[in-house]
Design a protein around this nucleic acid. Structure first.
Length: 220
DNA sequence: AACGCGGACAACCGCCGCGTG
DNA sequence: CCACGCGGCGGTTGTCCGCGT
C-alpha cells in the first residue's frame, strides 16, 4: 500500500462532514467515488458512504437504545442470526453498524452469549449456515423479513416517505421524528402483550404479527 | 497526577452481488 | 459472456474516554 495514501483515514472532522453534507445536498446520494474528485475531500468513496449511512443521514437516530429496540433486536437476531442489515432494516432509525455494535457490546454480554471463534462466526452469517435454522418455513420467514423497513422508503420530491410494514401507514421524513415513531409505537402497542407472554421463539413472535389466516403463511 | 485497563462506538477491510457497457 | 465499477454487508480494528488504582 503505497502511493494511494492521498486519502485520509480515521475519524471525520466537522469540516469533512460539512463538505460531505454539502455535496449530498447538491448531488444527492450515490456515486460516492466522485466526491473526492468534485469536492477535494480526501476520503474514499466507501468511507463517505459509510459516514453518511451511519452518522450524517437525517434518518439515523442517535442516542441510547430503548428497551423496545433492544427486545426487537434480540428477537430478530434469534431469527436471522448475524444478518445485521436485515435486523437494522426492521429497527427504524438504526443502522446495521449501530445494531451490530450494540449487540456486541451490550446485548451479547447481557444475554451471556460468548463470541464464537472467527471461523465459526464467519460461516454463521452465510445464508446456508448450519448455525441458523434453515427449514423451509423459517427460510420463508427470513425472505419475507428480508424486505426491510427501509426498503419501503420512497423518495418523492426529495421527501423520503416511509411505509410501515405492518400498519401500511405512510409517514414523511419531513415530519417530526415522533410521527415516524408513532408507526413503530403502534407496532409495539399491538404486540406488547404478546411480547410479554410469549415464549422467545421467533416463529411465535411472528405469529403475533400475522393472524393464522393471513396470506403471509400461505405456501409455507 | 499519571498510568493502565476496559467499554463504547466510529471507521476500515475484504468479500460479494448486481448492473452496465 | 466477460470485465469493471459501485454499493452493500459483516467481521474486525482503531480511537476515544471514563474509571479505578
Amino acid at each position: 500500500m503505497k502511493g494511494e495514501d492521498n486519502y485520509k483515514k480515521g475519524l471525520w472532522t466537522k469540516e469533512e462532514d460539512r463538505i460531505l453534507l454539502d455535496y449530498i445536498q447538491v448531488h444527492g446520494r450515490g456515486r460516492w467515488n466522485r466526491i473526492s474528485k468534485i469536492t477535494g475531500l480526501k476520503r474514499y468513496g466507501k468511507s463517505c458512504r459509510l459516514r453518511w449511512m451511519n452518522y450524517l443521514s437525517p434518518s439515523v437516530k442517535h442516542g441510547e437504545f430503548t428497551e423496545q429496540e433492544e427486545d426487537l433486536i434480540i428477537r430478530l437476531h434469534n431469527l436471522l442470526g448475524n444478518r445485521w442489515s436485515l435486523i437494522a432494516g426492521r429497527v427504524p432509525g438504526r443502522t446495521d453498524n449501530q445494531v451490530k455494535n450494540h449487540w456486541n457490546s451490550h446485548l451479547c454480554k447481557r444475554l451471556g452469549i460468548k463470541k464464537k471463534n472467527r471461523k465459526t462466526a464467519v460461516t454463521s452469517l452465510k445464508p446456508h449456515s448450519t448455525n441458523v435454522d434453515n427449514t423451509p418455513k423459517r427460510q420463508a420467514l427470513v425472505d419475507s423479513i428480508s424486505k426491510p423497513f427501509h426498503d419501503n422508503n420512497m423518495d418523492v420530491g426529495g421527501v423520503t416517505r416511509r411505509q410501515c410494514p405492518l400498519s401500511g401507514a405512510q409517514v414523511s421524513e419531513e415530519q417530526p421524528a415522533e410521527v415516524g415513531w408513532h408507526c413503530v409505537d403502534s407496532l409495539w402497542a399491538s404486540t406488547a402483550e404478546h411480547l410479554r407472554v410469549c415464549t422467545p421463539t421467533s416463529i411465535e413472535f411472528l405469529e403475533g404479527y400475522y393472524s393464522p389466516g393471513d396470506a403471509f403463511w400461505q405456501g409455507l
